[in-house]
Design a protein around this nucleic acid. Structure first.
Length: 353
DNA sequence: CTTGGTGA
DNA sequence: TCACCAAGG
């Protein structure tokens, strides 16, 4: 899942966001697939069963999206969600790999339920999570009702989110994956949609997770790399377009090779063994010039409370009280943090209450 | 993941 | 005020 640059990023290239105030008023382009998938995987009962409405339709992703968005807007962030379009042909092997992994996880889930192993059942249920077209459609409907903008990417959402940030239409992209950095996003925020205390997998231990920001320029400076160099390192360790990476090459060796030879093309072929034929230049070109679109409009509207109630309460059996409560908070936050401050002038004319 | 209740 | 816990759909 995504390029694993975790061990390449030096600590001094990360800015831990201790207080969300530093993001107040900032437009953040959130990788919708990444966020929804996290909600879908995480919001489950101890035995792995997701939240469902009376018709058996999964609602975990809607619950997560609803409450998380409200919390972010309450903190003053202007969220825009970026949805994936048609995946590039280059991604076919990775998608097949994920499909196979989910199939196997589904089998293991059944076995764990059979054996009465709750913990394993939950773990495999999370891994078997599949975000369907219907779920994505419902998420977009909910965002429309909330008046929260979303952008449809022609292909990779991470590329479109990076494009928004590059153009200045967003301050940063937000995802758990590092790919948007390779797509040139000037700032990446991680841990935005998972915050607070988090249970370590397979341990009775909790860690405090805080959002962190990685600035592309700072990262390149600290590593003495160009963006093309960074893409090369990514390709060497493996991306969604060459998930198997190269034999015996992790981040450390990849970094050294790129530093030594200057670019991936100049590394002696004998050093680059891969189980698949990889067109390195094609992948590199994809990161440098991915399909993106300019046809989007990022505008917030006052939430349409009736529609939100229709979707969450009437159609998906959410608790009326909770939705009313949350919407009250959201409308207040919208008025204080988004409405009237969109032009950057309006807020000075807000009548004191 | 989240909210909301509980008891120290 | 806070940590903890059950439940949410």
């Amino acid at each position: 899942m995504g390029v694993n640059l975790k061990d390449l990023i030096p600590d001094d290239a990360k800015i831990v966001i201790e207080n969300m105030r530093v993001l107040k008023g900032k437009v953040i382009a959130i990788d919708a697939y990444n966020a929804l998938y996290q909600f879908l995987a995480a919001i489950r009962q101890p035995d792995g069963t997701p939240l469902m409405d009376s018709q058996g339709r999964i609602t975990s992703h809607l619950s997560g999206l609803f409450y998380r968005t409200i919390n972010l807007v309450e903190e003053g962030l202007k969220t825009v969600y970026v949805f994936d379009g048609k995946p590039p042909e280059l991604k076919a092997r990775e998608l097949e790999r994920r499909r196979a992994l989910k199939e196997e996880s589904a089998r293991k889930y059944e076995a764990a339920v059979e054996a009465g192993d709750l913990e394993a059942a939950r773990r495999y249920a999370m891994m078997a999570s599949k975000l369907t077209d219907e779920m994505v459609k419902e998420a977009k409907r909910l965002l429309d009702a909330l008046g929260v903008p979303w952008v449809q990417a022609p292909a990779e959402g991470e590329a479109q989110a990076a494009y928004l940030a590059k153009k200045g239409d967003a301050y940063a992209s937000a995802s758990q994956d590092y790919d948007s950095l390779l797509f040139g996003s000037p700032r990446l925020i991680r841990n935005l949609t998972i915050s607070g205390r988090r249970k370590l997998p397979r341990r009775e231990e909790y860690v405090e997770v805080k959002p962190e920001m990685i600035e592309l320029n700072t990262l390149l400076l600290k590593l003495s790399l160009t963006l093309e160099n960074l893409i090369d390192v990514g390709i060497l360790v493996g991306t969604d377009y060459n998930p198997e990476g190269f034999e015996g090459i992790g981040v450390k060796k990849a970094y050294q090779l790129v530093k030594t030879y200057g670019s991936i093309e100049k590394i002696p072929k004998a050093l680059l063994k891969s189980s698949f034929e990889v067109d390195v230049l094609e992948i590199k070109k994809y990161f440098l010039q991915p399909p993106v679109t300019d046809s989007y409009k990022i505008e917030w509207r006052e939430p349409d409370e009736k529609s939100v109630f229709e979707i969450l309460v009437n159609e998906h059996d959410f608790s009326e009280d909770r939705v009313r409560n949350a919407l009250e908070r959201f409308t207040k936050a919208y008025k204080e943090n988004i409405k009237g401050v969109q032009t950057g002038l309006g807020k000075w004319f807000v009548k004191p209450s």
